[in-house]
Write a protein that binds this DNA or RNA. Structure first.
Length: 257
DNA sequence: ATGTCACATCTAATGTGA
């Protein structure tokens, strides 16, 4: 299985780019974040025409996640399924070819210490609790998406600039670490220890040209899947191309899945 | 230095969110 995750920053604004990319790269599964559209306005027909099944969890204007899969999707669940009354469309899970695929768009947090920052930390804890309820030891499962957290110094272009800043605070990194600690492996980092593999660059100030990026998009997998991980890449060419999202696709290949 | 996008709204310039 070849799986990709991509924060597209608006599926309608990115439709032509995503279609062209899908035709060229043909991943088995593509998880999308920040689709920014209600489900009945998602351009699902075009993806179905390319042979992809489509599962959606969207809303008007903001957030929104989707899973596209060449194998039929089953057991689709939307949201974290806890007691919190939360209208934000940020989590979707479905099973594709026997693999439980979960995708998340973690809140950005706006500013350190803000209400949205507090919500972000609480959301990560809710995500951890969801995984604890649903992940089974030995299962083939993965959690991918835009986590809006750079886990380590290697994942920010200048650690001194980012110390204590949004996306890199110790609180955010600890909350993400607790998610991972349910029993998941950061498979891109496992395959590329020591590599600078940014996935997001600010649209402003020529950040991409200067390679001033952050690694915010991650693929976490169970040990069963980690053992089958053969390759991982960040598709920087797409970020460099026309009408880019500010995030690049991350692609992971698993053998015998 | 601010530098950019996407989306919504009293369809044109502005606010919100990232």
């Amino acid at each position: 299985m070849r799986l990709a995750t991509w924060n597209v920053n608006g599926i309608r604004a990115r439709h032509a780019v995503v279609l062209e990319w899908l035709e060229a790269r043909r991943p088995d599964v593509l998880c999308l974040q920040e689709t920014k559209v209600e489900d009945d306005k998602f351009p699902a027909l075009a993806y179905r025409a390319l042979g992809y099944d489509v599962a959606l969890c969207g809303q008007k204007s903001y957030n929104g996640v989707a899973i596209l899969s060449r194998a039929p999707l089953c057991d689709v669940t939307r949201g974290l399924g806890d007691a919190v009354d939360d209208p934000q469309a940020r989590f979707l899970a479905a099973t594709a070819a026997g693999v439980r695929v979960m995708t998340a768009y973690v809140p950005n947090g706006e500013a350190v210490g803000s209400d949205k920052f507090v919500f972000k930390l609480a959301w990560l804890e809710r995500l951890r609790a969801h995984l604890e309820r649903h992940l089974r030891p030995g299962a083939a499962a993965l959690l991918c998406g835009d986590f809006n957290v750079a886990p380590a110094e290697l994942d920010v272009w200048e650690p001194r600039v980012f110390a204590g800043k949004l996306l890199f605070t110790l609180d955010e990194r600890a909350a993400l670490e607790r998610v991972k600690a349910v029993g998941l492996v950061d498979v891109v980092r496992a395959l590329h220890p020591g590599a600078r593999l940014y996935t997001w660059w600010d649209y402003q100030a020529g950040a991409f040209g200067r390679d001033e990026g952050l690694r915010l998009d991650h693929v976490y997998v169970t040990p069963a899947l980690a053992a089958r991980a053969a390759a991982a890449e960040v598709d920087r060419a797409t970020r460099a191309g026309k009408q880019p999202s500010d995030h690049a696709p991350v692609i992971v290949t698993f053998r015998d899945v």
